[in-house]
Design a protein around this nucleic acid. Structure first.
Length: 295
DNA sequence: TGAATTGTTATCGT
DNA sequence: AACGATAACAATTC
């Protein structure tokens, strides 16, 4: 289940291949999860030149421009490119944003000409170099969103934990203005963006905090430890290209560094106490009862 | 076979 | 009323 580090790894690996390419065709094989509709997404994509590939939370973000650099008319509408009064190109040229959320089992594949599509291809973009970008997703939870702008969608998300603005003080403020169990709060994308089940468990263990502890009960020092733990575990995971533990996400090496996730019964790497599995907010949760006391 | 997984939405309780 | 917790849901694999 791709979380922030896995999505970041994917984004970095495809960025160089995709930037500069133009989308020539788009086909959705699972229109239910193509928003606002398969037809609208296709209209938005066609003729779009991919000008940037970035990440927000667990979204892969492709910025599209149909406002050709040479000032050529829009290939689809025939309109001339929009210009601002100062002559530079608008901050929001024709085009828009293609957002891909892999959810549980989604993967991206870039196929060479003639290469067969994977078994669970849910959407295919044909590029101007004859290659195809494919969303391969066994469980069909993955979503594709085409939007002219992503402010509305991203505005509902909490801060990026690796951003400069995400300080220990900001985390303390965020925790203390609600009274929620720590783990569900960490998983809440509108509170903090990008954490999933693995890294929420890992961050809590590294901070020595119990997943059921109330966010309001944390001291500024607790929040500072959690802040450092979150950023630490995410940075380490990105450096190791994410966690691989099943067929969904191959290639990462972070699983060797996990302290609690998936280690029920194994000795805590800090104190040797057996790791305990429990359920918190319907999610499998792993703790060291000695390093993470209380509730 | 049922457990596991994400994020949204609806509903229940305090 | 507002907030937080809870459950259901989409679909598939092992």
């Amino acid at each position: 289940m791709p979380e922030l580090p896995e999505v970041e790894t994917i984004v970095r690996s495809v960025r160089g291949e995709l930037v500069g390419r133009t989308i020539r065709e788009f086909v959705s094989h699972w229109p239910r999860n193509t928003l606002p509709s398969a037809a609208a997404a296709r209209r938005g994509c066609l003729g779009g030149r991919i000008s940037a590939v970035t990440r927000r939370a667990k979204y892969i973000v492709l910025r599209l421009e149909t406002d050709a650099a040479g000032g050529k008319p829009n290939s689809r509408t025939g309109r001339a490119p929009r210009e601002r009064r100062d002559g530079r190109r608008s901050a929001f040229p024709d085009g828009g944003f293609l957002l891909i959320h892999l959810r549980m089992s989604g993967r991206l594949a870039l196929l060479e000409p003639g290469e067969a599509e994977p078994k669970h291809a849910r959407a295919v973009w044909k590029l101007d170099d004859q290659r195809r970008l494919v969303l391969d997703d066994a469980r069909k939870f993955g979503r594709i969103v085409y939007a002219a702008g992503c402010e509305e969608l991203f505005g509902a998300l909490g801060p990026e934990p690796l951003a400069r603005e995400f300080t220990a003080q900001a985390l303390y403020a965020l925790l203390s203005r609600r009274a929620r169990q720590l783990k569900p709060l960490l998983l809440d994308q509108s509170a903090i963006a990008g954490l999933g089940n693995i890294y929420a468990d890992e961050a809590l263990h590294r901070a020595g905090l119990h997943p059921l502890a109330s966010s309001r009960a944390l001291s500024p020092a607790d929040a500072a430890r959690l802040h450092a733990a979150i950023r630490d575990v995410l940075r380490t995971a990105i450096r190791r290209q994410g966690t691989s533990f099943d067929w969904i996400y191959p290639g990462g090496r972070m699983q060797e560094r996990l302290h609690v996730y998936g280690r029920a019964g194994a000795p805590c790497r800090t104190c040797g106490t057996p790791i305990v599995a429990l359920r918190v907010g319907q999610r499998g949760t792993h703790i060291c009862p000695r390093c993470q006391p209380g509730a």
